[in-house]
Design a binder for these strands. Structure first.
Lengths: 401, 401
DNA sequence: TCATTTTAATTTGAATGTCAAATTAAATAA
DNA sequence: TTATTTAATTTGACATTCAAATTAAAATGA
């Protein structure tokens, strides 16, 4: 138990240093309540193990004071290398980060098929990570951990994939398979969860303990950070925001049920209506067809406008329900597709504001954060970073004992 | 920091003892990972301060083994007295518990009006608590803390009431007012939250870390326990489940918005439809009119059945949304009114099961827990118990330092 | 230029705490 | 009665934290 205390101190300080970026010991002491003496002891230990490093303060200017200058500590980038992989329909998106979170390389590569056997996908990921390392002038075996984000129902704690649209088989112990195939620890989670981790680590959620991330791709996802920790639910299928019901006996959804939010706001839902009502061609790929619909709306086509407007209203209603249930500080709308601008419209956010329970306090902040597949990959990498840190600290704990 | 460790141990052990009811030291050591030596030290301290006591094991029978017998520890009921108060429309419901959670007395008393000035309500609560103590053969000043559950928007951490249907004034520092008026620490929270605390302390949630409690009175409430702790949201108005939207531009709700769940399942919503469509009298009190409606449905009145069926379907949809977002282990439906049986019907639960995302694992358990206002009061008392324990431990921490 | 002042970081030594191992306590079994 | 078994306590070693003292490294001022 005495040793537990030290373990706690190590974790607290390393997390604080990571969060701050650069921070002197004295501030660490103030922020964590750990005494200066102990901060000195623990940081010395972290330094000697190469997890952190000292950097000279570049306080060239007004904030230079007298007295012994503070010496900043930061995560030592060279300590570890991690990769993040986002599995999409047709491709893999990858990033390589150093231990500090600095991006060393980024790549995309095609998959043989949208749905693959677990072994095939694992090998594709292995090769892609290997290539990624080479591009950055590193060897694949230098990578300390790989985070993988995949759509579907994932038990993150043990890396078990109950189901994924990217895999041909259900109930795969995919985390273990990946770890075996790549020869380095692999950590897998639902992709929406990883966007939440990315926002918490690198993005807009850094200063918040409770926030929600709503992701919009072809489906609608949700990641929840509650009390500073990602909440994953108990069956690994929490946060199925896209399949919350917004209409009794409503529109048919991909999932087979009726009235799902997704069945009103996803691209296929828009196209279904457009094809039915207006003369929009049923041919061509989804992306260009949605583009056509959006252009029609912009140029004043009433039918197109009506279709998009309803999608926006339904989306606002879904968001309002999240606020009514969670009362979060912040909601981040994350997605890349410009074609989803109608969901980010001010009118939508306003509609949401009008549908939440009114109190004297300000409603939660809603921000739009546009990013592409590479940012999803960064989320996966952030998760790997977290896990690799934990492994490194475990090793340190053992060394000390 | 060294002392922090002991503080942690004290809290962990006291909580464990409370949770277990009766438990020998050796099991405490196994369960908490704290060594036997330390368990001995800390429990000796708790014993000497009168917070716990030893009881002889009544293992009259097969489980008697050789060796020195285990000695059970339990919370010492006589250590403290707490009261719990639930504020309803026309009355107060109160319970008096000892520190062990044993009920010593219970009462109900009328309020001067459904809506009262804060001072008036505070004095009514003071008098009621005082009377309650007298009934139990105790003095009011023996009560170490009082928990109060009230409908509305409450900032539990500082006892601030933004708004409550039971108070004539908005933005009242009601917790402080109560503490001043009663002369003993008072703790106030939203009533639905306190039902969740009651379930966690005394009820069906005792073995679960993540569960939801849906309360049905005239409105619909929600309490969330996430990671073993009550989640309250950031503006003190989390969990407004009754005002989640289930229909775009739907029925008008008491809150002024449209499409709220409450506007379909609350008693006033049922009556609105019944009065409109069938010949149900608009006269009389809500309770008896709902009773009439229910009887009509039971005797085969198609209109009445249709009204209740839709309420059930909408309610199922709301529940399914909770499951889709939270993926909890357990959902407890708590309410007393028999008139709400149609919401508890198997058909409703089945409809919910069909509307959640299907995975290989079993859907969350849904249980119905019927209880009356006194159980709400027990929730308030459980909250007081938690807070009084904390105060007692704080004192112990200081004594030791 | 060099002593003084100021602030940061480290070292020191006392106090606190945890825990494994040894011991004591209290029962049953032989 | 004695041996055995199991629970609880005591003991002594070791780990850890922290306040206070000390050292380090800068700016300021004479």
């Amino acid at each position: 138990m005495a040793v537990m205390q030290r373990e706690y101190g190590r974790r607290t300080l390393l997390r604080q240093i990571r969060h701050a970026g650069r921070i002197p010991r004295i501030e660490l002491s103030d922020l964590t309540g750990i005494s200066r003496a102990t901060v000195t002891t623990i940081t010395a230990e972290l330094l000697s193990h190469g997890l952190i490093e000292e950097v000279q303060r570049d306080e060239a200017g007004p904030d230079s004071r007298r007295g012994r200058p503070r010496v900043d500590l930061k995560i030592r980038g060279a300590a570890h290398l991690v990769a993040g992989v986002k599995v999409s329909h047709h491709k893999l998106s990858l990033v390589l980060l150093d231990f500090e979170g600095e991006q060393l390389a980024a790549e995309e590569c095609d998959l043989p098929a949208p749905v693959n056997a677990p072994e095939v996908l694992a090998e594709a990921i292995r090769d892609a990570v290997s290539h990624l390392a080479t591009v950055a002038g590193r060897r694949a075996d230098e990578v300390s951990g790989v985070g993988i984000g995949i759509a579907g129902i994932v038990e993150a704690t043990d890396g078990f994939v109950h189901w994924s649209p990217s895999l041909s088989t259900r109930n795969v112990d995919f985390g273990a398979l990946l770890t075996r195939t790549l020869g380095t620890p692999c950590f897998i989670d639902n992709d929406a969860n990883l966007v939440a981790v990315a926002e918490q680590t690198f993005g807009l959620g850094r200063e918040h303990k409770d926030f929600l991330v709503v992701t919009i791709e072809s489906g609608v996802g949700l990641g929840m950070v509650i009390g500073g920790a990602l909440y994953r639910g108990t069956r690994g299928c929490g946060a199925e925001f896209g399949h919350t019901k917004v209409q009794l006996n409503g529109a048919l959804c991909r999932c087979g049920q009726r009235g799902c939010l997704e069945a009103y706001v996803a691209d296929y839902a828009l196209l279904r209506e457009a094809t039915l009502v207006s003369g929009l061609s049923a041919e061509g790929d989804a992306g260009t067809r949605v583009e056509t619909l959006l252009n029609a709306a912009r140029t004043g086509d009433a039918t197109a406008r009506s279709i998009l407007d309803r999608a926006g209203q339904i989306f606002a209603m879904g968001l309002a329900n999240l606020v009514n249930i969670f009362d979060p500080e912040l909601i981040i709308l994350a997605g890349e597709q410009m074609q989803l601008d109608h969901l980010y419209a001010d009118a939508v956010i306003d509609a949401m504001r009008k549908s939440i329970v009114q109190v004297d306090k300000a409603p939660p902040e809603v921000v739009v954060h546009k990013w592409g597949d590479l940012m999803w990959a960064r989320g996966a990498a952030a998760y790997a970073l977290e896990q690799v840190s934990e492994l490194a600290l475990d090793r340190l704990d053992k060394d000390a004992a």
